[in-house]
Design a protein around this nucleic acid. Sequence first.
DNA 1: CGCCGTATTGATTAATGTCAACTCAGGTGG
DNA 2: CCACCTGAGTTGACATTAATCAATACGGCG
Lengths: 238, 238
Amino acid sequence: MTTRPPIDLSSARNLADAALQRSALGRCLAGYSAQTTLHVVRLQKGEHIVHAGDPFESLFLLSSGSAKAVRIGIDGREQVTRFYFAEDLLGLDALDAEVHPTSIRALEYSVAIEVPLRRLERMGIDVRTLNEALIRKLAHELQHEQMTMLLLGSTTAEERLATFLLDLGRRYAARGYSGTEYVLKMTREDIASYLGLKLETISRGLSRFNREGTVQVEGRHISIRDRERLGRAAAWAA
Amino acid sequence: MTTRPPIDLSSARNLADAALQRSALGRCLAGYSAQTTLHVVRLQKGEHIVHAGDPFESLFLLSSGSAKAVRIGIDGREQVTRFYFAEDLLGLDALDAEVHPTSIRALEYSVAIEVPLRRLERMGIDVRTLNEALIRKLAHELQHEQMTMLLLGSTTAEERLATFLLDLGRRYAARGYSGTEYVLKMTREDIASYLGLKLETISRGLSRFNREGTVQVEGRHISIRDRERLGRAAAWAA
DNA sequence: CGCCGTATTGATTAATGTCAACTCAGGTGG
DNA sequence: CCACCTGAGTTGACATTAATCAATACGGCG
């Protein structure tokens, strides 16, 4: 996996600006940075960006690093509902409520830009463009969740895993990294939780792909060797 | 199951108005009916409101009846992603794209009000309030999908079924019907698809609840006898 | 009356979960 | 520096759940 060119960490201003230029939504947000300050949040591995139950105040644009969203059922059962990477917008599911329904925590050292949505509204700033961008983001997110539901509801363990690996590759590729060679930021257990399986099943699946030569697996280093075959294993996600 | 007081079916105007008064979003929409015409769509059982792939033009507010959303994977596999009842807004997942990603079809004779969102925009009508309402709806929808993911990913067949029956009851209750006694509008197969199971499993589950006396099942007539116990079977959704 | 879509039930099989032993790497403190 | 500890991952044996296959029943409707 390639590393991003270093950016000036000493300057929150630069950091925010750089990150804001990278996505359509970011550029839309950049417009607001003239009218108010956008804070930069630095997170250590494992640290929470938002706790479930926290009052909703801001969204966060992940500038670098990665995170996982965890939803907790009434009986304490928890499930990873989403993995986030740079340029993803975090906390969207809180937009209809006063509190965050899911917890989000960093999988590694990460940097995020706070988008103080409620504060912008209170300041009477016109958030019309932002709202339109949010609608698109939300609808997109909705579609993603629906695909995940399809994945959870109608596929075998192996198909899920294959789809997951391809999806990760696609997301890395979209960010300018290699789509076939990358490092997993999450544990086997996180993956299992996300895919509605047990960690042993993930382990077995990876071992199997490795044995077959479809994917070279060395701990968390993933290298897709036979994209065609992995696509067939995923069946529906080509 | 109680029936709604009869409304004047001969007048689309009345019908639309009545439906529009029933939900917050509906009242928001009512404001637009002064500036343009809101069409009423009547659907026979099994008829499509939207086909997957149709260009996105309008949302639909279901005024009466019920519908199911079906998402089709690349390999033709399909899954019911959602059931809709009166007052639900249909087609939200198309908001970020040019085409509808899911098909929606009526489960019985149904009536919907067309919300010609794209036309409103083209006419230059100010959709700011509507946009805010949409954001809330979308976020709500997102949370619902997440709960479904949790259901699909981390529960047994029986838990899913129990949760489903309670959820249906809750939704009927929210609409002024009985929450413990209702008629299923969908087939066992639809339920199975939605819950990521096979129809035989649904059948067995219902038989089991019936045998235990938890839920009285007679074909599609459901009558929850032991809410407490069903809640325990659902475990996490009280 | 007989048919078709829907539903129930039983027998068997396949997939995944569970439990348990073991490896490995990294970090910590004596 | 090494011994220990902990968290993560792998692998195997076995148990359990739900899918599959198959037979049969029900019910509305032409």
